[in-house]
């Protein structure tokens, strides 16, 4: 074995994989939440649909997205593998354990919380990612008046009212005073999916799992990397709690709730 495989097959090295992929996934959550704020804009979904085109065509984002899929898989399977190995380190269980006396329940429930998130990710990706890439998404046509800046949106249909398709994800052209944008209407798909109370419930429930997973996971990642020092421990704790365990999950949970309750 060379030093590299030796390092990553040691207990600390395996945890390093979980920590590095986990913290990378944290940065993804920030971008995902910021971008999806476009859902809250009252412009018939135009900015969200344009953002979707950007995210699925930009070459840099594409590379990062494959890194992301790999990270989810590595993080989940390495995490579950370590849980399995850690169980083997205590073959006979205690008759009585008072876990709450010495540790926070989230730190003892990362596997359960993570598994809920994994199920959620599969459901979430089949709802939107799979539908957008392989399923049927109707097109919408936005007409923007160049002089007034007014935007109106309507389904992209023929005279009989049947939905029309274009080859690409988006087409833009100018006719007279109007700039026409034809784009896949993922926004409508989002609105439609979030009419389902069961799905909305699952999304909100999963965001609790995200919150509790990251409440421990964010600071735990830094500890595994060896970054523990009184000079910045409070900052890590603060960011982990407020940004990753409260603000981000709340923003994500607000999206399905917004469509279910307000739209």
């Amino acid at each position: 074995m060379n030093w590299f495989t030796k390092m990553f097959s040691s207990s600390i090295g395996q945890k390093l994989i979980v920590a590095l992929t986990g913290l990378f996934l944290c940065t993804f959550l920030v971008v995902h939440a910021m971008g999806n704020l476009a859902l809250f804009k009252s412009d018939n979904g135009m900015s969200f649909n344009l953002y979707t085109v950007f995210m699925t065509t930009n070459p840099f984002i594409k590379v990062v997205s494959y890194l992301l899929y790999a990270s989810v898989i590595f993080h989940a399977f390495k995490g579950l593998h370590l849980i399995y190995k850690n169980r083997q380190a205590r073959p006979v269980q205690y008759g009585m354990v008072n876990g709450k006396a010495n540790s926070h329940w989230t730190s003892r429930s990362m596997g359960v919380l993570g598994t809920i998130m994994l199920v959620f990710i599969v459901v979430h990706m089949s709802n939107f990612w799979f539908e957008y890439k392989f399923g049927y998404i109707p097109y919408v046509q936005y007409t923007e008046n160049i002089s007034t800046g007014e935007v109106s949106g309507m389904p992209y249909v023929d005279e009989a009212g049947n939905p029309k398709q274009i080859k690409k994800k988006m087409e833009e052209f100018v006719i007279g005073d109007n700039k026409i944008t034809i784009v896949k209407d993922l926004y409508a798909e989002v609105a439609e999916e979030f009419e389902n109370p069961l799905l909305v419930g699952l999304y909100v429930f999963a965001m609790f799992a995200v919150a509790f997973h990251l409440f421990h996971g964010f600071k735990s990642g830094f500890q595994t990397l060896g970054l523990n020092h009184p000079r910045y421990n409070q900052a890590i704790q603060f960011i982990g709690t407020w940004v990753f365990a409260i603000i981000l999950p709340a923003l994500f949970a607000a999206m399905p709730l917004y469509f279910f309750l307000v739209k």
């Binding site: 207990s11 390093l16 500890q223 523990n228």
Partner: peptide, 27 residues
Amino acid sequence: GSCTNTGACEAECPKGISISNIARMNR
């Protein structure tokens, strides 16, 4: 087993050894 940073060890250690030592070893 491997460490999942629950902090239970530090809380139960009769000598109050800090988990900052674990971070140092990781480093």
